[in-house]
């Protein structure tokens, strides 16, 4: 449950499970609460009430805790385990690509070391590897603003991977990209999902992308969960219920 200070109830009684290794897609109209939902998961926004149970399996330890109850430093810890990419990339455009990737390690680097640029050799090597993984290893020393939109989003993915997260949140990751680039970025998301085994939770606009990439889908309407199932099971009737009568599907190829 999430209620904003102005009284707008962005999310009401939304409850769902995400299994390890899933590619869960969240759909719904603009303003249906998709972004708010993602931001509650890593506490960029404060949920008003409710539980977010996170079963962590790092370092061979099974831990289970409620993200909604995290306080102070625990919140940073939660965010560190959950990578996130955004519609507008949200990388630091004036800084170099490699530095942007290194910022993924800020959560485990002390403030003064990071400000002086003293990242460990291990982290520097990792940053380089992740840039290679998303196919822009040759752009490491470019200024981030010199890259195209699709490349900037791949920098953002590399930064998120740098956190060694267990979950990757993606808020409309391709909404500001052209249709061709859009598939490149989605393919990299699938790659980290299948090859690195990362659980991905992704907001998407286009149903064609949902069917192509999602392993499961949930739909929000006015802050409430209205559908949960397999992407291919969304027929025209469901489409009309989620997006409203008169809505027409747009295809991206």
């Amino acid at each position: 449950m999430k209620t904003y200070p102005n009284g707008v109830r962005a999310l009401k009684g939304v409850s769902f499970d995400v299994k390890r290794g899933e590619f869960l897609v969240i759909i719904g109209l603009s303003g249906s609460g998709k972004s708010t939902l993602l931001r509650c998961l890593n506490r960029l926004h404060e949920p008003t009430s409710g539980e977010i149970i996170f079963r962590s399996e790092s370092d061979g330890m099974r831990k289970e805790f409620d993200i909604a109850k995290a306080e102070g430093k625990q919140i940073y810890e939660v965010r560190r385990k959950i990578g996130m990419i955004f519609q507008h990339f949200n990388i630091i455009e004036r800084h170099s690509v490699i530095n942007n990737v290194l910022y993924g390690s800020l959560g485990r680097t002390s403030a003064w070391r990071s400000i002086l640029g003293l990242y460990s050799q291990e982290d520097r090597r990792k940053a380089k590897d992740y840039l290679d993984l998303v196919g822009i290893g040759d752009k490491a020393h470019y200024r981030a603003s010199q890259l195209s939109g699709g490349q900037q989003q791949r920098v953002a993915i590399a930064r998120a991977l740098m956190q060694s997260p267990e979950i990757l949140l993606a808020d409309e990751p391709v909404a500001s990209l052209d249709p061709a680039t859009c598939h490149t970025v989605m393919d990299y998301l699938r790659k980290v999902n299948t090859e690195l085994g990362l659980t991905v939770i992704c907001n998407l606009h286009f149903l064609s992308l949902v069917r192509q990439y999602g392993t499961r889908v949930i739909a929000l309407k006015a802050g409430e969960l209205v559908y949960e199932g397999h992407p291919n099971d969304i027929d025209e009737a469901w489409f009309a219920r989620i997006y409203g009568e008169g809505a027409r599907e747009v295809h991206v190829n």
Binding site: L44, R80, I82, I91
Partner: peptide, 23 residues
């Protein structure tokens, strides 16, 4: 945007100011 981007990595307050706002 950049503030959210840096905060989402688990960066602390000072790091967020330095890496997201200062540039």
């Amino acid at each position: 945007g950049p503030i959210e981007g840096i905060e989402a990595t688990g960066a602390g307050r000072l790091q967020t100011v330095w890496f997201a706002i200062v540039p």
